[in-house]
Design a protein around this nucleic acid. Structure first.
Lengths: 336, 336
DNA sequence: CTGAAAGCGCTAACAA
DNA sequence: TTGTTAGCGCTTTCAG
């Protein structure tokens, strides 16, 4: 089963040449239909599988796509990977996952590693630390297929699949406002990330629309995206001890929403009685809370699928792709 | 950066032969130290990276390991994959993830797919549907490296990394008993899985030790492991409407614990007032519930790491490995 | 100490 | 229609 038969074995067994076998297998027209049938049947019988490594060496492509995410153990990303895998599998690509753990250096190393593995394209969600995207620019300039999803690099010309972060943030904030909260803080991811900026903008826009003043000290950036719990603790403590102590928090990422919940619980603050919380998350469990949280849920699975489809299309395009689109997918807002 | 330089380019540039370059690069002793230095420095300068595909073809190994799990979007498995990836990355292997979605056919197809990709070894957690493990037996008999983790195949001689399911189940049940619950039901995964049987045994043992009678109608198997929500709903409804309506449920898997919570909530039953729930889960969020659940948490990350270490050791072993161990890792029980 | 050449499995240009 | 052969990048015998 795993010490596979080669085209050579078939050729020998059938007394034909390897090229004949190859042609038969690849459905070339320049071959006698009886020979073809013979080869095909025999190949089927002995369960021949072409060696993808040899093919890769020949074709200079590996039929694999590299994925760069910050973390697998994250509801958003694991769901997105599920979507990625579902498409890739059906298209005959395999998926190589790497994690940055929000480190720029690790991101660089991962990309290099994947490239040295000759992946045919990259599906990337930037690390929270990343500000320098020249590595990606360099590759894109050379025509290497890259699709960003969720955390896209601003200013780079390529396909991007993102959620409508502005809308999600706007609606979550609006929900809090309509529920009567007046001092809404925003705990968010690193300002390096475009998604953070978009979510901040949505938050601001909602405040503005409802006549609430935006105060900068109500925005706390967690530069490690909540990976370091202390940074979230500090943020929350600062908010709670400030003169303008917020009555609600809108959190800007999956990990942060969970972290905030944990910290508030540790501080023995009840949600929503002592302080209200709403935020981005793809955790299904959060919706089981009583009372449940108002959450913004990204279509992670679908985003993974769409990104993978775009990537494979780019990879398999005969000509260099010059027209890129940004798929902005609607988030789902689940109001308590 | 990605149209890599080859050994040939170096040879040409330096006016030596490819074999000399190869030898220098591989630190062969049969080479002049000055030639060696020359090559090494030049290779460094032009940032030469050997082509792993060519190496694979040559060595007949791919430096990749295949992972077969039921689902990525599952806290246990995503954490385990995190552990797998952490070890594999450092050892120069890449990880190819496939999902069975609890289907035996898909499991088979995935294994075939990975094999045709010439992975050097397999990390497997069986699907809930699997009863026939002859595919794995066949491979193992041929000396192909496979390590099972979490859901291991009974009767197959190979490394296994599992949690102490008996202990975890025993302690969770014991906790419920000590809290005064007398009619404790057990909602669990497919009976095909060894882990289900072990967890059932732990549950039974606890009942027995505390003088509670075991009643078979209190055990509900969900053959799709909670993937199909209806099957869990039916199980719960049956339990609730039986004459011996339980006062607590002990759930046997990550997905089931979450599903049970959702269903109970939907039925407007309060935990623990109307019915108590305890179960296996690796979700961090569950611990934020108020009151929190008593949960059994498997050392997923560590299990992934240990399994990967064992696998790589087997792969790289010069001789066929004949001695196998089963690492039984302690679960963590988090008592509310 | 170094080079030439075969071979890993496959495709495709070239010959027949 | 079929066969022969070169070559993808690399290692490794075998000669020198």
């Amino acid at each position: 089963m795993f010490e596979s038969v080669t085209i050579k074995d078939i050729a020998k067994a059938l007394g034909v040449s390897v090229s004949t076998v190859s042609r038969a297998l690849n459905g070339s027209y320049e071959i006698g239909s009886d020979t073809k049938k013979l080869v095909l049947e025999y190949a089927e019988k002995i369960n021949y599988r072409p060696n993808p490594i040899a093919l890769s060496l020949k074709e200079q492509k590996s039929h694999s796509i590299g994925v760069v995410v910050c973390e697998v153990a994250n509801d958003y990303f694991s769901q997105a990977i599920n979507g990625i895998e579902s498409i890739a599998y059906n298209r005959g690509y395999h998926v190589i996952i790497t994690q940055t753990h929000e480190s720029f250096d690790r991101e660089n190393a991962n990309v290099k590693h994947l490239l040295s593995r000759h992946v045919d394209g990259l599906l990337v969600s930037l690390s929270a630390q990343t500000t320098d995207t020249s590595q990606f620019k360099y590759l894109l300039d050379k025509g290497f297929p890259i699709v960003f999803f969720d955390r896209a690099a601003p200013g780079l010309e390529t396909h991007k699949v993102v959620a409508d972060n502005f809308k999600g943030a706007f609606e979550a904030t609006e929900t809090l406002i309509k529920a009567g909260y007046k001092k809404i803080a925003h705990v968010t991811n690193s300002n390096n990330l475009l998604i953070s900026q978009e979510r901040l903008d949505g938050y601001k826009a909602a405040l503005h629309q409802y006549g609430l003043e935006f105060s900068p000290e109500h925005v706390k950036y967690c530069n490690h995206g909540g990976k370091i719990i202390e940074e979230v603790e500090i943020a929350i403590n600062e908010l709670l001890s400030s003169v303008t102590r917020p009555d609600a928090i809108f959190s800007g990422s999956d990990k942060l929403t969970i972290s905030c919940m944990g910290i508030l619980k540790k501080l023995q603050l009840k949600i929503p009685d002592d302080i209200e919380l709403a935020g981005f998350t793809n955790s299904d469990v959060v919706q089981l809370f009583d009372p449940p949280l108002t959450v913004v849920r990204q279509p992670a699975f679908e985003m993974g699928q769409v990104a993978t489809e775009l990537l494979i299309k780019t990879i398999e395009s005969k000509w260099r792709v010059e027209e890129f689109k940004t798929e902005k997918m609607p988030p789902e807002i689940i109001i308590r």
